[in-house]
């Protein structure tokens, strides 16, 4: 197994607030890593640092063994890192297919090649089993599950090798969440895509992830294969911190 992503001693501060203190993390090829932690622990910040949205104040990142400094989201994309944000980064006023190709539009000369984008969008969506009958419809008109599917499909089909999913299952019912989980499982089966997924539903984490990391106090304090842990242990870990904090008051 090769390490596709290595994070060493990364720190990120916002003024007086320290979001990440000393994060060390690794992601192996073809694995799905679950990232858990209490609200406000800094999980989104970590994801945004890994995808080029933020620059770390300290530490380094290695992609496939080479140290990189990510200048921008575009730069990260060119290295094969893509993200699905909590906010989904969808533009409501644009169509499904325009959203799928956002910032990666296909063109003929200076003009957009809408026909090709529509065709590819339809193909991609159906290949992952998502049924959106009209790719020209505005994304605002889709249901929550469909929107999430479009956002995930966008990342999946961007030829990314490292996918960062920030709470892809948030605000989704059981049925809709199943689609995303199936998608992730399919990705795992492909073997060449590695995924970091932030989730609060530890049952789902145990279901689909190979390994789980806990982000606490600005660092990774727990790193175990999911086969070697349990729902109770994970819950206890997070709750214990809360209890400690309140007992010491």
């Amino acid at each position: 197994m090769s390490t596709v992503l290595q994070v060493e001693h990364v720190a990120k501060r916002f003024g007086a607030l320290t979001a990440l203190r000393d994060v060390n993390l690794r992601l192996e090829k073809g694995e799905v890593l679950g990232l858990i932690g209490d609200n406000g622990a800094g999980k989104s910040t970590l994801i945004k640092t890994l995808c080029g949205f933020h620059r770390p104040d300290e530490g380094r990142l290695l992609v496939n063994g080479d140290e990189v400094v990510l200048h921008s989201v575009d730069h990260a994309r060119s290295l094969g890192i893509d993200t699905v944000y909590q906010g989904l980064a969808l533009i409501n006023e644009l169509s499904v297919y325009h959203n799928m190709f956002l910032n990666r539009e296909l063109r003929i000369g200076p003009l957009l090649n809408n026909r090709a984008m529509r065709r590819l969008a339809r193909e991609h969506l159906s290949s992952i089993g998502v049924n959106i009958p009209d790719v020209t419809a505005e994304v605002a008109k889709l249901s929550g599950g469909q929107r999430q599917a479009v956002a995930v499909a966008r990342a999946v089909f961007s030829d990314a090798k490292i996918l960062l999913l920030d709470e892809p299952l948030a605000a989704m019912g059981a049925k809709e969440g199943t689609l995303i989980l199936d998608l992730i499982r399919d990705l795992k089966d492909r073997g060449d895509v590695s995924v970091i997924i932030i989730a609060h539903n530890y049952a789902q984490v145990l279901d689909v992830c190979d390994r789980v990391n806990l982000l606490q106090h600005g660092a990774i304090t727990f790193d175990r294969p999911t086969a070697e842990t349990s729902l109770e242990e994970l819950t206890e870990l997070v709750v214990a911190e809360y209890r400690d904090r309140h007992r010491s008051r």
Partner: peptide
């Protein structure tokens, strides 16, 4: 034009998408 619409429609989203 597409990016202009994106920036106005969802500034944060557009930034996240790398625009």
């Amino acid at each position: 034009g597409l990016h202009t619409i994106s920036v106005g429609g969802n500034l944060i989203g557009a930034t996240e998408a790398g625009i």
